[in-house]
Amino acid sequence: MQPDTKKGSCCSPSRSAGADTPLAAPIATGGKRIPDDAVHIPGGRSFTGTSRPEIPDDGEDPVRNTRVKPFRIGATTVTNAQFAAFISETGYVTEAERFGWSFVFWMQVPEGLGPTLGVKDVEWWRRVDGANWRDINGPGTMDAVWKPDHPVVQMSWNDAQAYAKWAGGRLPTEAEWEHAARGGLGDVRFPWGDREPDDADFQPCNIWQGDFPKTNSAKDGFVTTAPARHYEPNGYGLYNVVGNVWEWTADAYRIKSLKKHVRQRLATMKGYKLSKGGSFLCHVSYCYRYRIAARSGTSPDSTTTHQGFRVVWPE
């Protein structure tokens, strides 16, 4: 029996259902640290959502017309090297480090670690003590896993906010993110158009190939993250907008719905923040959320091996 695409989720488990966690220390804004490859995104009339929803209960539709001001956005998500520079200058301690543990996908849990706790209904997510942005999969894994040009992961929304403030920028709104992700195209599903990635001969982004969560053929060349600058960029020059890692936005996770079961679900998600783009764990058979209009909500203190972010700067 195939999992239900409408309900299935490989998205980030939540560490808590509470409100924002205070930052470990105030982060001073030190002027705009805009990367040389930051992309100019023209403003004007735009839209959020889609007229062709796949998971309506996530709030993918209807299309909402909007207007965005011009802005700059990172061509890639923030990399390990960029985040390391932030840590070096500020001494910031991430939330995974302060909590002392984080979530790791079951295939990446180090051998010999011993029993780990899973998350109810998504048991492939395991609590691993000592997992953080350096030791991504747990203690002693940095040398084997951490790569400077890959997206920084194990990022909470609060961590992303702290970095963005230090860089003189902020997280994108959902409208800005979708506007940039479409690369000048219209109501398309993906940054390159509407052609669906598959497990055989078309892999334009880093997602799962095979039988989730059991078997990943890695047909696209990656079992976990790909370099932040990989695959063909979209029409605006942005890399890995979908797939690879989920990207935090500035927005709260909200859905306008009259459905009772949706409202009941949202009642358990107060304070959650919106992520966009999907990750290397998404697949059409289960978590079809690597589409531009797809959405996911997670508590702001939650961290996983597939959660990152990119920064925007007003013009």
Rank of each mutant, 00 (worst) to 15 (best):
F99I: 04
F99Q: 01
G100L: 09
G100V: 04
F103H: 14
V104F: 03
W106K: 13
M107L: 15
Q108E: 12
V109T: 05
V109H: 03
E111F: 10
L113R: 13
L113C: 03
L113F: 11
T116I: 04
V119F: 15
D121Y: 04
D121P: 00
V122E: 14
R126Y: 02
R127T: 04
V128Y: 01
G130A: 08
G130T: 03
G130L: 03
N132M: 05
N132Y: 12
R134K: 13
I136V: 15
G138F: 08
P139Y: 02
G140K: 08
T141A: 05
M142W: 13
M142N: 06
A144Y: 08
A144T: 09
W146M: 11
W146K: 07
K147G: 06
P148Y: 08
H150F: 15
P151E: 12
P151L: 05
V152E: 01
V153K: 10
Q154T: 07
Q154F: 00
M155E: 00
M155P: 07
M155S: 06
S156H: 04
W157G: 09
N158V: 11
D159M: 12
D159H: 05
D159F: 04
D159G: 09
A160E: 00
Q161P: 00
Y163K: 07
Y163F: 15
A164M: 05
A164N: 10
A164E: 10
K165Q: 14
K165N: 09
K165A: 11
K165H: 12
W166H: 06
W166S: 08
G168T: 01
G169E: 01
R170H: 09
L171P: 02
